[in-house]
Each structure stands twice: as structure tokens, then as C-alpha cells.
Design a protein around this nucleic acid. Structure first.
Lengths: 139, 139
DNA sequence: TTAGGAACTAGAGCGTGCTCTAGGTCAAGC
DNA sequence: GCTTGACCTAGAGCACGCTCTAGTTCCTAA
């Protein structure tokens, strides 16, 4: 249970985002946060809810295939303050196009795979072998 | 230009499939072919058109995220001849579901990304800053 | 015959993105 | 005080899927 003090431990953030504590420390080393994460007197990370929100967006971008390097670039842009919104937009638009292209590619592959599935189903229903792979003899 | 002798060199197969010659040798080491690729007197690989067709399917499966290990399993099933079609079908169906899930995930991410893009566009049109990330101060 | 490119093998290396280890420190409950 | 578990750093290690190297051989064409 996350209390409303706005200061979350790494374990709580791990729970909230699905990222491992290792990954969170790794992300920090890689400069993916929008600010230096403050520490408690004892040296422990104190995350805010805004950090979690950012991580959730990061997750979306990562899960959709954005490389760490681009994520870092985006974080740098946001960190350096207002004025570079066109660059941020360009980065997002480029990623958007990449994701759309990836979806199109997957749909094309899916069609091929589905055709194979249908062929196998037909073969199994009818007992025929048309269209399925058979082992080729080695000459 | 591929002549109709049915015996293709590794370079020709590389051209035809988009896989590098390194990748083709790697695939062979990994047992992804349906047969042992025969060799010329001088020890060079002699591919048939059916190998290329198989590679094109492999490409589809790989590109859509099937790991090499599953591809090898599928190749093993085909190699071991008729009788295991239900297993092949199961493997394909499982991959089909995985691809569908991946597409759904990407579509969800795309929606989030697109919302961000729209927000930034609005911001840039109007000169407002609502909804875009601003650098957070370190406490 | 000889040059040059294409192919051969075995094995090392690499980029990405974490994940884990070692060797501690910190903090809360008993 | 002491135990326990979460947390700390720095750095090594890993899984995947190729990619490249070194050193050699093959083959075609001039």
C-alpha cells in the first residue's frame, strides 16, 4: 500500500511499475529520469508519484520498441526545459511511425502464419497432406 | 540472376532471403534447415529452391518474434516426417496467439503515444504547455 | 597461370537490456 | 542490543541473435 506522503521507496516503485529494482537503478544510471532522484539521510532513493508516471510512459515507449538511447534523448529534452517541444514531438512522431510500421509487419506475418494454421487444420481434418512441409531428401 | 539449375550458392540464397551469409551458416549450425544442405565437390553449400522457400517462412516466423529455439523445434518436427502434424499446428497456433497479443500490446502503446503526439501538436499550435512533461525540481 | 572474389571452418566478439553478485548499510520490531 | 529484510554501490554476467576474424581453399575469367 502506497501512502500519500509522496515519497516512495524503490520497492514500492518496482511494484507500481512492474520494473525490477535492478532495472530502476539501471534506468537511473542510464539517465532516463527527469530529475536526479533525491535520497533519504541513509542514502535511499525517494521517488515521487511524478517519477512513477514518467516510468509508466517510459514503459510504454520501451515495450513498443523504443531503444534506451532514444528514451534517454527524450528525457534529456524534457529535462532541459521548455523550448524544445518541436524536437520532442519529432521524436514521438518518429516512434509512432516505427510502431505503426511494426504493427503492419506483424499483421503481414500473422496472415502468413494464419494461412499455415488453416492449412494444417484442413490437413488434419481431411487427412490430406497438401501444402504442409515434408522432409526433403538429401541428394 | 538465379539460373534454373536448382543449385544455389550461399550468396544467391543470401540475396534471395535477405539473410546474411553469416546468418545462413549460423542457421545451419542451429539446425534450422529441413535437411542437411548438400555440398559441392569443393565443399560449398548447394541450396535448392525449397530451402529458400523454407527460409522465407523462417524469416516470417523470426521477424514476428519466434525465438530460434522454437524455430528449431518446428524444423525438427518437419524433419522427423509425417505424424506429428498436431504438434506442428499447436506450435503455430501458439505463435499466432503470441503475435496477436503483441499486436494488441503495440496498439495500446500506439494509442498512448498518439495521445502524446496530439498533446504536443496542440501545445505547439496554441503556445500552451498543458499536458506536456516539464522538468521537476530536485527537492 | 594467376589474380580476385566467393566460399569454407572454428571460434571470438558484440549490442542490447537487463540481472545478479559481493560485500556491505540502514531501519524497524522484538 | 539484535535480527531481519529492504536497500546501497560497483561491477560482473547473461541471453539472444547474429556478426566478424583469421587463415585457408575454391573457382572463374583473363
Amino acid at each position: 500500500m502506497i501512502r500519500h506522503t509522496d515519497a516512495l521507496s524503490i520497492g514500492q516503485v518496482s511494484e507500481a511499475t512492474g520494473l525490477s529494482v535492478h532495472a530502476l537503478r539501471f534506468f537511473e544510471r542510464e539517465g532516463l529520469f527527469l530529475r536526479p532522484i533525491p535520497r533519504s539521510a541513509g542514502g535511499r532513493r525517494l521517488y515521487a508519484l511524478s517519477d512513477v508516471e514518467w516510468l509508466i510512459l517510459c514503459n510504454r515507449l520501451r515495450d513498443s520498441g523504443m531503444p534506451i538511447a532514444d528514451l534517454r534523448r527524450f528525457a534529456e529534452l524534457v529535462r532541459s526545459g521548455p523550448g524544445n517541444e518541436p524536437e520532442r514531438l519529432a521524436l514521438l512522431e518518429e516512434h509512432e511511425r516505427a510502431v505503426e510500421a511494426r504493427i503492419a509487419e506483424l499483421n503481414a506475418s500473422l496472415a502468413v502464419i494464419h494461412a499455415k494454421v488453416v492449412t494444417y487444420r484442413g490437413h488434419l481434418r481431411d487427412g490430406t497432406v497438401a501444402g504442409v512441409w515434408a522432409p526433403a531428401p538429401s541428394p
